[in-house]
Amino acid sequence: MQRVNMIMAESPGLITICLLGYLLSAECTVFLDHENANKILNRPKRYNSGKLEEFVQGNLERECMEEKCSFEEAREVFENTERTTEFWKQYVDGDQCESNPCLNGGSCKDDINSYECWCPFGFEGKNCELDVTCNIKNGRCEQFCKNSADNKVVCSCTEGYRLAENQKSCEPAVPFPCGRVSVSQTSKLTRAETVFPDVDYVNSTEAETILDNITQSTQSFNDFTRVVGGEDAKPGQFPWQVVLNGKVDAFCGGSIVNEKWIVTAAHCVETGVKITVVAGEHNIEETEHTEQKRNVIRIIPHHNYNAAINKYNHDIALLELDEPLVLNSYVTPICIADKEYTNIFLKFGSGYVSGWGRVFHKGRSALVLQYLRVPLVDRATCLRSTKFTIYNNMFCAGFHEGGRDSCQGDSGGPHVTEVEGTSFLTGIISWGEECAMKGKYGIYTKVSRYVNWIKEKTKLT
């Protein structure tokens, strides 16, 4: 034993070699072989497995989906700052455009905790909710729209109204504003409101030439003092309507412009014939205590009207009353817009006519005020429907199939267009061939041609 100890002390290297040989010859039971080890760690190889990531292109799944990435790591994937920024906006807080917040056709661009709407022409605001041009839906104005110097929408209202708090709607500024039905039992019968379409306001006024200088022999019209197929109006439903009495009662109609003036057809009036105007009328054979009678003290036909040349060209006249009318729910003026808007309103496509005229061709006159909704007829169809001249200051309205029309005794009465609950004068009943005849239409004086003249002559002093 002493000898062994001496050998170990003198030859430590020998001992180490012996131990190493023993270990190498022993069977290893701690580690699995290569094949079995792979069965336990069965993990798919990654895209760049075996390579240094710093030297390969980034992978979106590896960089940002398996674990949260930084902007720089995302930049490695896209290799483009702009594309990385677009991805980053949604990656950080989701897609803010998912709810489609942009209105009126706006395009949404996502941002971090926010979004941006790219608005089409005519709109602005956070969600493109603000109209900035009158060309689109009248700028959301209830009545009139004008573009300011910086191309912003400025709404306005006709006389007797003021802008509401929203700067879009119009509200009454006087007790009985024009064009409004205020009798409670008839307010439910107000005709369907007309909503502004998209309009090209630059070209809204037709490029028409008034044929002022045409000389033409007097034409022989049949029954051209021209509501057939209409309905009984309720008291106060058309408070701007008046009836004219002269040699015979209810020979023509008219509309209240203001307390002192009536507008009617020029062919209705004769110099030297006494005319009485009755406002607030409903049943011409009954006294309903809503009527107001006034005498006409002055007749002003349009300066281009000449019955000797043509009885229905420039067929418009103004009547001055001896005493002002007292405005109330049964006696209310009709609204008159400017030339541009009167023309736009007419193009809405349908209007209402009213009167006490004959209820059928050569038949009896109506006792109760009649009204009828009539569609506008395109000019080409209008011209083809008659052998008589249709001037540019006239328009056609009615039904091709016949059966409904204005008729004798309705002449001078109103053709009105309702705009968001307020009625505007767009025409004056003038003439036609018979009444409600198939293929024939009622012919009306186009008020847009005469609004400046009306307003100039009827100013209240």
Rank of each mutant, 00 (worst) to 15 (best):
R3Q: 12
I7A: 14
I7E: 13
A9S: 13
S11D: 06
G13S: 13
C18H: 06
S25A: 10
T29V: 14
V30S: 12
L41S: 04
G50D: 10
E53Q: 00
F55A: 12
F55H: 13
V56Q: 06
L60A: 05
E61N: 04
R62D: 00
E67M: 00
S70F: 03
E72G: 06
E73T: 01
E76T: 01
R83F: 07
R83A: 14
V92K: 15
G94Y: 08
G94Q: 14
Q96L: 14
Q96C: 06
P101C: 02
P101E: 04
C102M: 01
D110L: 10
D111P: 03
Y115V: 04
C117I: 01
C117G: 02
F121V: 13
E129D: 11
E129P: 04
C134H: 03
K137T: 14
N138A: 07
N138P: 06
C141E: 00
N147H: 13
S148A: 09
N151W: 09
C155A: 00
S156I: 05
S156G: 09
Y161N: 00
R162V: 12
L163T: 06
C170R: 01
E171P: 03
V174D: 07
V174M: 07
V174N: 06
C178Y: 00
G179E: 01
V181S: 10
S182A: 11
S184E: 14
Q185E: 14
Q185Y: 12
A192D: 13
D198I: 11
D200S: 11
S204C: 06
I210F: 09
I214H: 07
T215C: 04
Q219C: 05
Q219K: 12
S220V: 12
S220M: 08
N222D: 15
F224N: 13
R226C: 06
V228K: 10
V228E: 11
G230E: 11
A233T: 09
F238E: 01
N245F: 06
D249L: 07
F251C: 05
F251S: 09
G253I: 14
V257T: 01
N258P: 00
T264M: 03
H267Y: 03
E270P: 12
V273C: 06
V277E: 00
V278Q: 05
A279M: 02
E285C: 06
H289R: 07
H289S: 14
H289L: 07
T290D: 05
I300Y: 06
H302A: 04
N306T: 04
A308P: 06
A308L: 12
N310E: 06
H314D: 06
A317T: 04
E320W: 01
L321G: 00
P324M: 05
P324D: 05
V326L: 11
N328L: 00
Y330Q: 05
I334C: 02
I336H: 00
D338T: 10
K339D: 07
K339E: 15
E340N: 09
N343W: 03
I344F: 13
G355Y: 15
G355D: 03
W356M: 08
F360D: 15
R364H: 10
A366P: 14
V374E: 02
R379C: 07
L383M: 09
T386W: 06
I390H: 11
M394H: 10
G402T: 09
G403F: 11
R404V: 09
D405L: 15
D405I: 14
C407P: 05
C407I: 06
Q408S: 12
S411H: 14
G413V: 08
V416P: 00
E420K: 06
G421W: 03
T422V: 09
F424N: 00
S430R: 03
S430Y: 03
G432E: 09
E434R: 06
K438C: 07
K438N: 10
G439E: 07
Y441W: 04
Y444W: 02
K446V: 02
R449H: 15
E456M: 09
K457E: 09
K457Q: 10
T458W: 00
T458I: 06
K459H: 10
L460S: 08
